[in-house]
Design a protein around this nucleic acid. Sequence first.
DNA 1: ACCTGAACACCGTTCAAGT
DNA 2: ACCTGAACACCGTTCAAGT
Lengths: 206, 206
Amino acid sequence: MAKAGAKRGSYHHGDLARALEAAAITVLEERGPDGLTLREVAAAVGVTHAAAYRHFEDKTALLAAVAEQGFRALALGLAAAVDREPGDALARLRAFGEAYVAFALDHPAQYGVMFGPRLNESGRFPSLEDAIGEVVTIVAKDIKAGQAAGRVRPGRTRDIGMSIWIFSHGYAELVHRRRVKVKNRAVALEYFQTLFAPVLRGLEAE
Amino acid sequence: MAKAGAKRGSYHHGDLARALEAAAITVLEERGPDGLTLREVAAAVGVTHAAAYRHFEDKTALLAAVAEQGFRALALGLAAAVDREPGDALARLRAFGEAYVAFALDHPAQYGVMFGPRLNESGRFPSLEDAIGEVVTIVAKDIKAGQAAGRVRPGRTRDIGMSIWIFSHGYAELVHRRRVKVKNRAVALEYFQTLFAPVLRGLEAE
DNA sequence: ACCTGAACACCGTTCAAGT
DNA sequence: ACCTGAACACCGTTCAAGT
């Protein structure tokens, strides 16, 4: 049982670290954020669970790697969505929020790890912090452009970015917890637009 | 070690169920949402961990009871805060959001349980659902009053309530995860007001 | 009726030992 | 240098046995 799951080649001289990260994401999306065990991840890769400790200090370190990879993927997705948007600064902010929610909906378990366990207490994993910084940078850029164009209300750019993050994250969270009830992905995104529009209106220049 | 913690009286004919709930909340706020074990809760009450199963079907059921109690306390706090507010409907909505965030900040671990583990998948714990309903009812009442007074934008009451919930929850979540950086409770509440004001402005009648 | 004691399967972590 | 095997302490859950 422990050696099921194939992967014939030995990981001697392979990249076990990345193989474990990838397997962790797979297991995560199958079993949910709580069901992840180091032992199953190792088994999925065809290796003893103790082998993981050669590459990750502990289970938290593996989760931090998964979270970091998630934030980098999120940043790429957000940048692409914003660049794809032909409208003005406000339209780009709307696209940002929608792409953010879409990522959370499409990777629920990974998103759960990104925000779930209190990773990075006491500043372990500085590269995780860097990855989060990328996300923040993306909104900030468009908010400044919007302010320069007189479409977004003046004031601290960071505050406006936070508001957008808070609302997008809060929405994704409550959908995951089934407190916002939506039938499917399409409806979830549509309902987000409905709720997000008035919020954005509050962030417009008067 | 297992019998430390005092509580001289036998729980034979006492209310072990509620004693376990109370102990769970204490342990939770000390150890954090992840560090809670059934065994430590039982030990804190002076009972074998197996005894808990006479009162709760499993660990999840105990957590659900903790969550339910949390939602009821939250509803009481929100109702009190709103009633204390002398201003108009919008001021009451602001008071609602602030009281919501205050509760989350003051009971971080319990709040984590209320939204953390995927409790209540497949409709176990219907009374938990009831408790959540109380919270929703409170906002709805004031939104309707605000709409009647022409202060809150017309449209689906539920949507506006959701937006307020989403923003308050999202803020509390990101503070807990240290993604919103604030020095202390007072600053956290003040910063919430700063961010919440423009959002509320978007929900005003035009 | 309510709780204890002991067992079971499972987990994260460690470490000597193999190659 | 990298992985295995076996051990350790701990967990949730179950159940026969005590009172």
